[in-house]
Simulated scan of single mutants.
Amino acid sequence: MSEQWSAPAHRRVTPPSEAPANLKALGLTVEIIHRAIEKGDIARRRVDRPVYPVSYPGVTMWATTLAALRQELLKIRQGWKIGKTGNYETVYSEERKIAFAVVAGDSLTGVDGKRDPKLKRKKGPKTRDRIERNAKYIQTALSLPELEEEEGVTDDEACETWFIMVRASKDKIYIEVSRPIEAGDGNVDDWSPRHLVEPLQISGAIAPIDPYGDDDDDDGEELVGRQP
């Protein structure tokens, strides 16, 4: 018998109908996210051929989606910058104290399901550090300027890191913008909040793959694969 999941008391999942207002508060729009993912999928299709390494379409999907997201946010001239500290690739705003990373989620990404989603691939210490910093902001109620004074903390690290999570099915790409607040064994054990975004109607899409792996151990998982 599988272990029953118990939702934490603070759990908050907002529906796609509330996405425009929720994303506006974060400096994003549904349209920006959709355009970035569409560009990622177009680029992925160009290299989805047997002559390329099996992981290359997924890496291309991730890289182009992130690049397009950066281009969209840099274009609006609201203080967004490119974050690369420790090869942890984000787009971030010093003013808003928010950073966004693009990641792949499991089969419960983008829906209010029987449990909260997990990341499709296990992550390592860099992701854990970001999640623990998110939790510190909440649990200790420290102001971000105080945290920025910590030795060795760069501008992009001194932000709350939110995940733009993507999950591909046969005919849709499911999306959510969520803040991880508790790290588990190479994954995320808790989120607050999760903002669901209207899915994109795209057939044949695949999950994005972060090539750096964040010092991850793939543990035998397939690098490329469609979600059920």
Rank of each mutant, 00 (worst) to 15 (best):
G124I: 15
I202Y: 04
K75V: 05
R46E: 08
R35S: 15
Q71C: 08
D190N: 12
P228W: 00
E149L: 07
L196Q: 02
L23A: 07
V166Q: 06
S143K: 10
L142P: 03
T29D: 06
N187T: 06
A7H: 04
M165F: 00
R12V: 11
V13G: 10
K170Q: 12
K123R: 02
A158E: 12
E151Y: 03
G220W: 01
I42Y: 03
D216A: 13
T140W: 11
T90H: 05
I164Y: 14
R70Y: 00
E72L: 13
G225R: 07
P193M: 07
L108A: 11
V91A: 10
A99W: 09
R44D: 02
D215P: 00
Q78F: 02
A168D: 15
R12F: 11
P180I: 03
V102D: 09
P193V: 08
D156P: 02
A68K: 10
R35T: 11
S55D: 14
T109Y: 08
R130I: 15
N22K: 15
P145E: 10
I37H: 01
S192V: 01
F100K: 09
A141C: 06
M61K: 14
E182G: 09
E176S: 15
K170L: 09
V177Q: 06
G213N: 00
I206D: 02
G113S: 11
K120M: 09
Y52G: 07
N22E: 10
I76P: 07
S93H: 04
E198M: 11
G213T: 01
D106S: 08
V13K: 03
I32E: 03
P125H: 08
D217V: 06
D106F: 04
E94G: 01
V59H: 03
A63N: 14
K118E: 07
Q201V: 05
R130T: 11
G40S: 06
Q139T: 00
N134G: 04
Y137D: 06
P8T: 01
S17A: 15
A36I: 07
E132F: 12
A168L: 11
T65L: 08
R121A: 10
D214F: 01
I138W: 04
I131M: 07
E38C: 13
D116V: 09
N134D: 03
I209V: 14
V224M: 02
D155A: 10
G220I: 02
L223S: 04
